[in-house]
Design a protein around this nucleic acid. Structure first.
Length: 299
DNA sequence: CATAGATCCTGTATGC
DNA sequence: TGCATACAGGATCTAT
């Protein structure tokens, strides 16, 4: 699913293909795709037309395009979240409409359009104000609560370790909490935990500082490798702006490999329900905690 | 406040 | 063959 490597691949494509261009027309074909823009689709379209796209930025799984108005002032941006199945595609105007095409953005140069396509409509677009978030840092207001991601040069490793070890929850849930560390979804959480030889149900507060730091290093490693591969894609749903799939799925060690041998020890990979989704792990390399839910019962 | 669980959505795969 | 059900999981909302 679109996690950090996939979203970064899309950001890179937007940087190349749409930055510097001026919006000529916006067509909203599905109101749900702009539901987070509270003033409505007409407002989004009206305010977007005539602006120039100044950059392509990302934090975690959020993408945004800072916009310059005719006055030159840049205080707004177009925010995009791909959800589970969202795509931002750069397509010639004459290309046939995609089945789930929800928003079309055309440019004054008449060249390739930017299209938001989303089968499951968990993703969407909105206009938002850029607000200061700490020193030397400006993000859309809706992104203000999202933590920095592990590939951000300003990510604070020690702070992350401290906060992780204060969590009274399973370590996997903590990895998926975008307000603690952003960009990690179900796939890379499982892959990172396998690399760190940790079971996802381990309580975060039982991790030593060294183990927590190692886990962060494994997260960085798997994200970097996936990024080099252009992201993970199981089918045509997860693609770059040119509609091409990444190939990191060939490198996955546990995710989606139930019943197949662990690449490290040969034990059969297991699947377990977790947070309304699946967790994949090696029962030998990643020992389950002895008493996952044990509590002192003081009577 | 922190944490856990339910919820939104639709195409695909599977079972009977 | 057809119908029903399970499943995929981002972020957010509600409940405790």
């Amino acid at each position: 699913m679109p996690e950090l490597p996939e979203v970064e691949t899309v950001r890179d494509g937007l940087q190349r293909w749409v930055v510097g261009r001026t919006v000529a027309a916006v067509e909203i074909r599905h109101p749900r795709a702009v539901r987070r823009h509270l003033p409505g689709g007409d407002d989004l379209a009206a305010r977007l037309v005539g602006t120039r796209i100044e950059a392509a930025a990302r934090r975690g799984k959020y993408l945004w395009l800072p916009l310059a108005a005719a006055s030159g002032i840049v205080d707004e941006c177009l925010v995009a979240h791909l959800g589970m199945s969202g795509q931002l595609l750069v397509r010639p105007p004459e290309a046939p409409d995609e089945r789930h095409l929800h928003v079309r953005i055309a440019f004054t140069d008449g060249a390739q359009e930017l299209r938001f396509v989303d089968q499951r409509t968990f993703g969407g677009l909105m206009l938002d104000r850029l607000v200061p978030a700490g020193a030397d840092d400006v993000v859309p207001a809706i992104v203000a609560h999202i933590a920095r991601d592990p590939v951000d040069p300003a990510f604070d490793d020690a702070l992350f370790v401290t906060r992780l070890r204060r969590r009274d929850s399973a370590v996997k849930r903590a990895l998926l909490d975008q307000s603690l560390v952003s960009g990690i979804g179900n796939i890379y959480a499982d892959e990172s935990l396998w690399r760190a030889r940790l079971h996802g149900e381990r309580r975060a507060r039982t991790l030593t500082r060294a183990v927590a730091l190692d886990l962060l290093g494994q997260v960085r490693g798997v994200l970097a490798e996936a990024l080099r591969a252009g992201g993970t894609s199981f089918d045509a749903l997860y693609v770059n702006v040119n509609g091409q799939s990444g190939y990191f799925d060939r490198s996955l060690a546990v995710y989606g490999r139930e019943g197949k041998p662990c690449r490290r020890c040969g034990s059969l990979i297991r699947r377990a329900a977790f947070m309304n989704r699946s967790s994949f792990f090696c029962p030998t390399c990643q020992r389950p905690p002895r008493a996952p839910r044990a509590r002192l019962d003081v009577t």
